[in-house]
Amino acid sequence: MLKSLILCINNKKLEAHIQLGLKKSGYNVLTCEDGNSLIRLAHTRHIDLVIVDEELRGLRAIDVVNIIYTEKICPVLIVANDFRNDYIDWIEKGWIYGSVHLPMNQVELLKIVKGAIANGERMLLLDREIEKLKKQLAERKIIEKAKSILMEKKSCTEEGAYTYIRKISMNKGVPMEKIAEAIIRSLKSKK
């Protein structure tokens, strides 16, 4: 699948040079003029990587990076004239994949772009898996709480309580955690 990048560099000659190299390497490259348009573009398209000038117009580069990171859109590369110590903090926090310093070698840039996209995809998959596991754990906690209520109120075993919840779930075509929530709510309303 064709990978899409947003390129937002103040120096238009440099931007054209980077864009040409990336397009020759098979990337779909979108450009924009400032931080605000970059965010709008990132929200409306599937983007695999953002390459942004540290001297961004409109929104500051740090604000753009923070928005993209918070919304888990894609990895970000910062193009900079000089290395700044706060880039290390941004990299450690996961806000940016890395920074590219001027003047840059096109071959090295392509390696960094490829690595950033691959790691970004891996991070997004891990984040989705973590969210899925958190949801499953929360559902399991609700079911366990409902089981303990049933065990106490109906004087049944843990297996019996689980079977009771599962049977109602299957009969009504409702997920077990919803049945468990109803059991917990009914206990609270009786108090």
Rank of each mutant, 00 (worst) to 15 (best):
G21I: 01
G160I: 02
D63E: 15
I143Q: 01
L77R: 07
I39M: 06
L124E: 14
M176Q: 13
G120L: 05
K132Y: 12
G98P: 01
L77Y: 09
H43L: 11
G21K: 08
G115D: 14
G115H: 12
V64I: 06
F83N: 07
G160E: 15
E33A: 10
R60Q: 11
D63K: 04
H43F: 08
D48T: 04
A146Y: 03
K13P: 03
V100H: 01
V29A: 06
Y97K: 03
P75G: 14
A138E: 15
Y162K: 08
G98K: 01
T163S: 10
I165D: 02
V29P: 10
V113R: 04
A146M: 02
N171P: 00
V65F: 02
M170D: 13
A42S: 15
I142F: 00
Y162A: 14
R57P: 00
S37L: 11
E33N: 11
N11E: 15
N171M: 09
V107M: 04
L150Y: 00
L7R: 05
V50T: 06
K24T: 10
A42R: 09
R60G: 10
K153D: 11
N105R: 03
D89L: 10
G58W: 04
P75W: 06
L20K: 15
G94A: 10
K93W: 07
L41E: 10
R40Q: 13
H43T: 07
L56W: 01
N85K: 12
L77C: 10
E131T: 07
Y162P: 00
E92K: 15
L7W: 05
A138Q: 10
L2S: 14
R45C: 08
N36K: 10
V65S: 07
V50I: 15
N11L: 05
V79I: 14
Y162G: 05
L125Q: 14
K132Q: 13
M1R: 07
Q136F: 09
R40M: 11
I96C: 04
I130L: 12
C156P: 00
N28D: 13
I9D: 06
A16P: 03
N105H: 06
E131K: 12
V64N: 00
S99R: 01
I165Q: 01
E55K: 09
E158I: 03
K147D: 01
E181I: 09
V52M: 11
E159F: 04
L137I: 04
N11V: 04
R185H: 13
E158V: 02
E129A: 13
L187D: 12
E152A: 07
I18Q: 07
M1I: 06
I88Q: 14
Y69F: 14
K111A: 11
N28H: 11
I142M: 12
I96F: 03
D127Y: 11
K132A: 12
D86W: 09
M123A: 13
A16Q: 15
D53T: 02
D89S: 13
N28W: 04
E54M: 10
